[in-house]
Design a protein around this nucleic acid. Structure first.
Lengths: 320, 320
DNA sequence: GAGGCTCCTGCTCAAAAGAGCAAGATCGCC
DNA sequence: GGCGATCTTGCTCTTTTGAGCAGGAGCCTC
């Protein structure tokens, strides 16, 4: 927002005096005119110029507040069909921001029309958070399908199944779990697993979901895949060295959206990225400072059609 | 600001959605009504409730912005005839806040009616700052009189005289300097100095000034009186131990406005605090975190009739 | 210093927002 | 489950604000 041309110094000062009376003292433009010895039209113009110069800052301070202008710019500059941007006004911790984002994702799911009969979901802290924010009865019956493996090696894992079950349960629907680890050590084992009728059936269902909701992980030692024991910190370091910015449904990509390690990718269970790219409705929920890079990769490479994120991440995306 | 009673959860959410459309997207209440499927009256009420609940924060971001509601509350709760409170919105450093306060003091002096023929001033960083912010021709001839001693022991001192001279010069008026140190070591020397015709004349003029402008110092090692070499850090520590919260025109007071060390006070050159208390127009300019205590002492004990300060200090004063 | 230009001013008229009210809905209480 | 009290709703009427325009002031150019 540029400074208006041709506004004299004393007009600028007057516009501030007028703004004080208007916004803080709730005076009418007419009353302000009497006080400042101006016509009410002049007062109106001064107030307009104060706004145009960015001297008036209006913030909506509420956990559910969104930033519609940023959403619009994001849609326009990226071609997303929809963007949900939660305000970060008054937020102190990253956790609070992520909770707000999860809430917004839950709201978005709830308002989806038509209601998807089959909903593919990934797992992780974010998705779990989304499941908790959904209200009982958010949809009248949805079949929730896991789209990537996650039965795993320590207690964190329970959340993968519980996320799906919670989302389905709250929609009075059913959950179809993918009973498989996220990543196999040997390719053969993975192929054998996929050949299993049950697993193959789940994967087929996952491929045909009408909508997908997933998050993405940053490529660092805090990744959920490290936490769950599928990858070591050393492996992550190696992926980063090869250009990885993060993972989507367990698959690590670089900033061009390309699979960083095809061999590792082959051992990863779940739908392929191209299946996400082809789907008509894919909702990515990504929030937090550390996920700016992966968020950019996801959006720029068509991995989602809808992005739910926070103001700071959105602004980072708008910078290019 | 309390939460409105009886506002349901979904109304609260609606009020946020409405606020987004109203304040960020500049839609009319009518248009919002169509979008949210509400009547325009309902939208109006939702917006009003969002404001009443404090969800809408409007800030005027400008170096010259003031906080009129705080000024009013300050006048009402303290009995000051006037209060000028500068906004701290968007301020990062204490120096910037003090500069804003000095600017506001300069503005206030400029707008004073009737214009005082004789203006008594103290010296220090703040007053110097005020002198710099005054505009050439701010008043048509004012006699500026120093009201406390300040010819002193190192280079900082030059500012005492230059402050008075600058203020007078910019008003096309004259400056009357008080050619005396701030504090004498021996009472006899001080009395001898006051007996001098020139000095006595200046002091008499100072006592009869129509208006006074002064700042106040905090009681700590950063005090200007320590800096200028009149007091040692040990002396300050002693004063603090005896209840001193800061100084006004070189005289240390406690939170009841009483002189902390009468003997020291006797050796201090300048007008007495009671003379300030009796004067009809005394303008205190006090800003910054470290001066909250002395600001409170000055205001609570009738040492000024007008206070120019910053938002944070003002809020501290309102807390009692 | 005349002419043409831009920008500013104060207006009319139209749109938007707010105050206040009566009717209807909702709730607690017995 | 009826009854009174309270809250909410949708309206009318009024106030406030904004859009658009014509006249005029100021300014640059020649």
């Amino acid at each position: 927002m540029d400074r208006e041309p041709y506004m004299s110094d004393t007009d600028e000062l007057l516009s501030i005096r007028a703004a004080e009376l208007y916004y803080e003292e709730n005076q009418t433009q007419d009353e302000i005119g009497v006080i400042l010895r101006l016509t009410r039209w002049k007062v109106g113009r001064l107030l307009a110029s104060a706004k145009a110069n960015g001297f008036i800052r209006i913030e909506i301070v509420h956990p559910r507040a969104r930033r519609l202008p940023i959403e619009r710019r994001l849609r326009e500059s990226t071609g997303l069909t929809d963007a949900i941007v939660v305000s970060s006004a008054g937020v102190s911790s990253d956790a609070e921001l992520q909770s707000r984002t999860a809430q917004a994702a839950a709201d978005y799911l709830t308002s989806l029309r038509p209601i998807p009969r089959t909903l593919g979901i990934s797992w992780g802290r974010t998705l779990h958070d989304v499941s908790l924010h959904l209200k009982q009865g958010w949809a009248p019956g949805v079949n929730v399908v896991q789209i990537n493996g996650g039965v795993s090696l320590n207690q964190r894992t329970g959340t993968a199944a519980s996320t799906a079950v919670t989302i389905a349960h709250k929609a009075d629907g059913s959950a179809t779990l993918l009973p498989s680890p996220a990543i196999f050590e040997r390719l053969e084992t993975k192929q054998a697993m996929e050949a299993d009728r049950t697993v193959a059936g789940v994967l087929a269902l996952a491929r045909n979901a009408q909508a997908y909701v997933f998050s993405a992980g940053q490529a660092d030692a805090n990744s959920a895949l490290v936490d769950s024991g599928y990858l070591t910190v050393a492996q992550i370091d190696d992926l980063v060295a090869r250009g990885a910015v993060g993972d989507v449904v367990g698959r690590y990509i670089d900033h061009n959206g390309r699979i960083v390690d095809p061999e590792l990718n082959e051992r990863t269970v779940g739908i392929q990225l191209d299946q996400l790219r082809r789907a008509p409705l894919t909702i990515a929920v990504i929030s937090g400072r550390s996920k700016h890079a992966i968020a950019r990769a996801v959006v720029r490479n068509g991995l989602c059609t809808v992005l739910v994120t926070d103001e700071d991440t959105a602004n980072a995306l708008l910078q290019d």
